[in-house]
């Protein structure tokens, strides 16, 4: 499977979840793991450009597909992805645990609705839980991300391929 543009060998055990494979086998610990049953949204990654829960997929199922994690949105030293920049500007994060999942969900949301209305924003982030920031600033961040995003938004992210 390809992760952030880099080809990786097959995962070992078939029962390995994609979330665990990313974190434990590939060292990509930016993908966070909260509930491990699809409720909290922390582990959201892009699979072929669409956001999915990495805790609800086996790693072997991602073989032959393109996975993008939070690490793939902007490389070290590069400008932040518009969604990351918007969360930064609008104080859309506090402890940061839920943030990678929110960012990946919002990348998917903006790919579907480049200029989301209030209802689309609420539905777009409803699958992600935040326990400290509160949702008001996250909603503002989504609106800001839409303003910052070049149109059409590049859901495939920026720093693909590294460097």
């Amino acid at each position: 499977m390809k992760v952030n543009g880099i080809e990786y060998p097959s995962p070992g055990a078939s029962r390995r979840l994609l979330s665990d494979h990313l974190r434990h086998d590939l060292g990509l610990t930016g993908t966070h793991v909260g509930c491990e049953h699809g409720v909290c949204g922390c582990c959201t990654v892009l699979l072929d450009g669409a956001p999915v829960r990495s805790c609800l997929m086996l790693a072997v199922q991602a073989e032959g597909h393109d996975v993008m994690t939070i690490e793939g949105l902007a490389g070290d030293g590069q400008a932040l992805h518009p969604v990351q920049q918007a969360f930064h500007e609008c104080h859309g994060l506090q402890c940061g645990f839920c943030t990678p999942g929110f960012v990946m969900s919002v990348v998917g949301l903006l790919a579907q609705h480049p200029n989301p209305n209030v209802q689309e924003i609420d539905e777009g982030i409803a699958g992600n839980l935040c326990r400290c920031t509160g949702y008001a600033s996250i909603r503002r961040a989504v609106k800001r991300a839409a303003e910052l995003s070049p149109s059409p938004l590049r859901a495939e992210g920026r720093g693909e391929g590294g460097t």
Partner: peptide, 8 residues
């Protein structure tokens, strides 16, 4: 559920 779940 949510759109992210419906993607799969």
């Amino acid at each position: 559920a949510h759109r992210v779940i419906r993607n799969r």
